[in-house]
Design a protein around this nucleic acid. Structure first.
Lengths: 214, 214
DNA sequence: GAGGATTGACTGACTGTTCAGTCTAAGCGC
DNA sequence: GCGCTTAGACTGAACAGTCAGTCAATCCTC
C-alpha cells in the first residue's frame, strides 16, 4: 500500500538529490532543486527527510550502497582472483561501463570533504571504505588459496591498494591531464600484478571486457 | 612603504582565511569570519580580494605554495634519495612535525572537492599535483643515477606513488580507525622500497627524525 | 469524514556585496 | 613649517538575494 509508493517516492528523491549533488556539488545542493528533479514540492522533500542534512546524508549512503552492491554482483560472477581484482579496478578507474552509476567520482570527492565535519557522512564513508577493503582482502585470500597470488599480508595490501585506488579516483574525477582513466587502470593493475605476483598482459582490451564503451 | 604593509595585510587575511577553512570547511567560510580573524572589517576583505571566491582561491594557492616550499626546503638538505623520499612521505603522512603548516589534509579534501567546479581552484590543484609528481620524478632519477634505486619508469612511479600518498592523506585527514598516520607511513615506505628496490628498516624511529613530536 | 500526503505562500535568518562617507598620510605650493 | 588638496585605506550601515524550514489549507484514499 502506501509504503510501496512512499518508498519509490523516497528513492526518486534520493536519485534526484544525487543528480543535483553531481551537478552542483554537495554544498550548493538546494532542496528546491531536488524537489524539482523529483517532480514534487520542496515542502514534501522536507516532509520526507525532515532536514536537508539528513536528505543529503541518506543520498550519499544510498549512492555508496548501490555502488558497492554492483561491485559485489560483478565480482561474484568471476572465478579467477586476478579477474575479480581487475573488475574492481575497472569499476574504480574506467568511466561508466554501466550507465546506472552516474559519475561516482565527483560524489566521492564531496563525500570525503563532507565527512570531515558531518558525523553522518563520516559514518557512511567509513563503512564504505571498510567494505571496500574487506572485498580486497577476500579477493587476496582467495587468490592465495587458489595459488594465483603470492602470499602477502591481505590486510596491508587492502589498506594500501584501496588508498592507491582512491588516489587514482581523484585524478580521474578531476580529469587530470596527466592521469587519464586508462593509464590509472593500467598502472593499478601493474602494481597489483607486481605486488601479488601474477601475470597481467597490459595489451588486453582495456575497457570493453563486457559492456559497451559510452 | 604602503606596499609592504599592504602585503602583510593580505597575508594576514590569507592566513585567517585558511584558519577558517580548516575550522569550518571551504563552503561554510564566511568573509565576516575571515575579517574577524584578521582583525578588520568584512568590507576591507572584499576591498582587497574583490570577491569571496577569489579570496578563497588565493588562500588555497598560498597554502599549497607554502607547503611545497617547505617540502623543497627539507628534501634539499638530504643527500640520499631514499632519505629524500622518506621525508616526502613523512610530510604527507605524519602529523605536523612542524607547527607551521596547520592541518593540510583537511584543506586538501576541500581543495579536491572545490576543484571539481571552480576553475581557479582546479588550476591550483593541477599545478600542485604536477609539482609534487615532478619532485618524485627527480628523486627517482637521482636515486637511479646514484645507484640507490632500481631502474624504473620515473614518470609511472611518480603518478602511481602520488596517487598512493593522496589516498593515504584521505584516510589520515578523516582519522580512519584502521589507517593511522604511522601505518600509512610504514606502508608507503614499504611500497617504495619494494618498487624501487632499496632497503628500508621499518624499525627506525617513526617520526622524530629531526623535529619534535607535538 | 478521518488521517496522512501534498502543496503554495510565507518568513526568518543569514551573508556577500555596495556605498557613502571618514580618517590618515603624503604631496605641494608658499 | 603650514594650510590645502588628494588618494587611498578603511568602515558602519544598509541592500538584496537566497533558502531552509513552517504552516494552514487542500487533496486523496480508505
Amino acid at each position: 500500500m502506501a509504503t510501496v509508493e512512499e518508498e519509490s517516492r523516497r528513492l526518486e528523491m534520493l536519485h534526484a538529490a544525487l543528480d543535483v549533488i553531481v551537478e552542483r556539488g554537495f554544498p550548493d545542493t538546494r532542496i528546491s532543486d531536488v524537489a524539482e528533479g523529483a517532480g514534487v514540492s520542496p515542502a514534501l522533500v522536507i516532509y520526507y527527510f525532515k532536514t536537508k542534512d539528513r536528505l543529503l546524508a541518506e543520498a550519499m549512503r544510498h549512492s555508496e550502497d548501490v555502488w558497492y552492491a554492483e561491485m559485489q554482483r560483478r565480482t561474484e560472477a568471476i572465478s579467477s582472483a586476478a579477474g575479480r581484482l581487475e573488475e574492481v579496478v575497472a569499476m574504480t578507474c574506467l568511466p561508466n561501463r554501466d550507465p546506472s552509476s552516474g559519475e561516482s567520482w565527483a560524489v566521492w570527492l564531496d563525500l570525503w570533504a563532507q565527512a570531515l565535519r558531518d558525523p553522518d557522512v563520516r559514518t557512511v564513508r567509513e563503512e564504505f571504505d571498510e567494505h571496500f577493503r574487506e572485498t580486497l582482502r577476500q579477493i587476496v585470500r582467495r587468490g592465495e588459496a587458489q595459488g594465483e597470488f603470492h602470499d602477502v599480508d591481505a590486510d596491508d595490501f587492502a589498506v594500501a591498494y584501496s588508498a592507491l585506488l582512491d588516489g587514482f579516483a581523484i585524478q580521474i574525477a578531476l580529469a587530470d591531464p596527466v592521469v587519464g582513466p586508462e593509464r590509472a587502470f593500467d598502472l593499478a593493475m601493474r602494481v597489483a600484478a607486481n605486488e601479488l605476483g601474477f601475470e597481467w598482459r597490459a595489451s588486453r582490451a582495456k575497457r570493453g571486457s563486457t559492456r559497451r564503451v559510452r
